[in-house]
Computed example of a mutant assay.
Amino acid sequence: MQFVRINGVSLHYRYRPRAGRPTIVFVNSLGTDMRIWNAVARQLSDDYACVFYDKRGHGLSELGEAPHRIETHAADLAGLLNHLGVAGAVICGLSIGGVIAQCLYGTHPHVIEGLVLCDTASRIGTAEMWNGRIRAALSDGIASFADGVMEKWFTPDFHEKRGDELAGYRTMLTRQEPAGYAAACAAIRDADYRTTAAAIRVPTLCVVGDRDGSTPPELVEGLARSIPGARFEIIAGAGHIPCVEKPDRLAALIREFMTDDMQRRRA
């Protein structure tokens, strides 16, 4: 395991360099850790340098002083990339990870060569919704709403046919520290990049599962429409976490993006 202290917190990360190959940085969603990318990584890490990390307050990374903002997460990621000597990368962010990627483009555009925004938006949910989630996490525990989250993360087919995996991902969620989960909820609640998406000037792919119950296809399509030249793709048979439910399809879309969209930019 690899750890580094960035902005006062110890961040857990994994870096697989590939000399002369483009770098993809994977940013996980709320209530998960970097293991959600494992199946995608198996298909891409031979051909691309890959960075995975647990954002602060998640997985094995420290929370630090809370509350904090999406800008805090973006500064953490910028610091990690600087530590690794990664000067330019494609940032692939899921849900809050996609919000962090949008923020990073605004604060450190020089480190970004492209964006893959998965099941995310420029603004997610309402203050009332997030405040309710924060109260529940801190008072009743994450397990009190975990089943509802699973319904948004995964399709009915996943629930029916992949019950052992479902139990594992539910455990990943419920073992999350409530303070870290609540701090990330507050950061999402206060984030709004609807007025800045039009300023993005790097190749961008927006992807969503057709059964996503957290950021539905029409919301993600709206994000794609707001970013000049962005591609929009729907993954059939996937909920909010396509890197778990349909990793082959997501990996194929990322590879296509890297070989077509990114190469056209470099030409």
Rank of each mutant, 00 (worst) to 15 (best):
H110P: 06
V27S: 06
R56A: 07
I254M: 14
G180C: 01
L115C: 02
R211H: 15
R225K: 12
E113F: 10
D212Q: 05
I188F: 14
H159N: 03
G59P: 05
V99F: 09
G237W: 00
V86N: 14
G88P: 14
E177L: 02
D261S: 08
A199V: 11
R264M: 05
V9W: 01
D190M: 06
L11E: 06
P178A: 09
H83A: 08
R231K: 11
I227G: 02
N82M: 15
Q2T: 15
Y13T: 12
G98N: 11
L81C: 10
D212L: 07
T171P: 04
G125R: 02
Q102Y: 01
I254V: 13
N28W: 03
I36G: 00
D76T: 08
P247F: 10
T23P: 01
H12C: 11
L253T: 00
R14A: 14
C50D: 13
I241D: 02
R211Q: 13
D248C: 13
G229K: 03
I235G: 04
R123N: 00
G31M: 05
G148A: 06
R56V: 01
S226N: 00
E113P: 08
A19S: 15
L173R: 03
I200T: 05
R42T: 14
G141S: 03
P247W: 13
T126P: 04
R211A: 14
M262K: 08
Q2G: 14
A236K: 04
T120V: 00
G106D: 14
A183Q: 12
R21D: 10
F26K: 00
T174Y: 01
V99T: 15
A224W: 07
A252T: 10
I6V: 11
E233H: 13
R56C: 04
D212Y: 10
T196Q: 15
G114H: 06
P228R: 01
G64P: 09
R231Q: 12
R189F: 03
P67A: 14
R194G: 03
E165T: 08
E256G: 14
M150A: 12
L94F: 02
K152A: 11
G125F: 06
V27M: 08
E160W: 07
Q2P: 14
R21Y: 08
R211G: 07
G239W: 02
T215Y: 05
D46S: 11
R231I: 06
C185K: 12
G148C: 03
Y193I: 00
I100C: 09
M150D: 10
H12W: 12
G20V: 05
R21S: 12
Q102T: 06
Y181K: 03
L117N: 03
C206I: 04
S226F: 00
S122G: 11
D261L: 09
G148T: 07
C50R: 09
L84P: 13
K161S: 08
A197I: 11
D46N: 11
S61Y: 09
S214W: 03
W153D: 07
L115G: 02
V208M: 08
H159W: 02
V90G: 09
C92I: 00
P22F: 00
A230I: 04
A184D: 15
I188N: 08
E218V: 15
A66V: 05
K161D: 09
T120A: 02
I254H: 08
N28C: 06
F3P: 14
H58W: 11
D47N: 14
G106Q: 15
G239D: 02
